[in-house]
Amino acid sequence: MNIFRLAGDVSHLVAIIILLLKIWRSKSCAGISGKSQVLFALVFSTRYLDLFTVFVSVYNVVMKVVFLALSYATVYLIYMRFRNSYDSENDTFRVEFLLVPVIGLSFLENYAFTPLEILWTFSIFLEAVAIMPQLFMITKTGEAESITTHYLFFLGLYRALYIANWVWRYHMEGFFDQIAVVSGVVQTIFYCDFFYLYVTRVLRGKGKMSLP
C-alpha cells in the first residue's frame, strides 16, 4: 500500500458516494446513465469473486464489500426506487458493442485460462469502458449537472492516481500487472477530454457543464 493507491481508492469511494447521495437527496437520477452503473456493478461482481477464494487483507475485504454494496444500491435507486426520473430516452448507448469485444478479449488475453482469471480480466477490460454510456449521454444531451461532473472528476482522479501507484510499485517492488496497467491507461485517456471541460467550464463557470 502506498499513498497513491490509498488516495486512488478514496477517490473511487468518494465518487461512488457523491453519485449515491446526489440521487438520494434529489430523489432523481436524471442525467445519470443507468447502463454505466449496471456495468460498474458487473465489474465489481466479476472482479471480487476472489472474496471467496483468497484473503488479502481486512482493508481489501472491507473495500470490496463496500464497493459491491454501494454499486448495487445505486442500480437499485436508478431502476427501482427513482425509476420515474430515469432518463432512458437519452441512455441509448449500445452496451453490447462494449460487452462482445470485452468478453472476446478476456478469453484471448489473460494470465490463466481459468474461470476466475477470465472473469477478473473481463472486469478489468469492462471497467476501462464502462463509463462510455455516461459520457455518451452527456454528449447527447449536451449538458451535465455540476454534481454529475464532480462524480466523473473523482472517478477519473482515481484512475490517474492508480497510474501513479503503478509507477511507484514498479520502481519500489518490481510489480507490473500488464493487463491492469494497459487497460488503466486506456481508461484514464477517456477522462482527459472530460478533465479539460471540467476545469475550463465547471470550476471556472461554477455551474453545470454544457458542451459547445
Binding site: 473495500m63 464497493f67 494470465y111 490463466a112 501507484n165
Partner: peptide, 10 residues
C-alpha cells in the same frame, strides 16, 4: 510470478 491469485488491488 504469473499474476494469478495476486490481485491485491481493487
Amino acid at each position: 510470478d504469473d499474476g494469478v491469485d495476486d490481485h491485491d488491488e481493487l
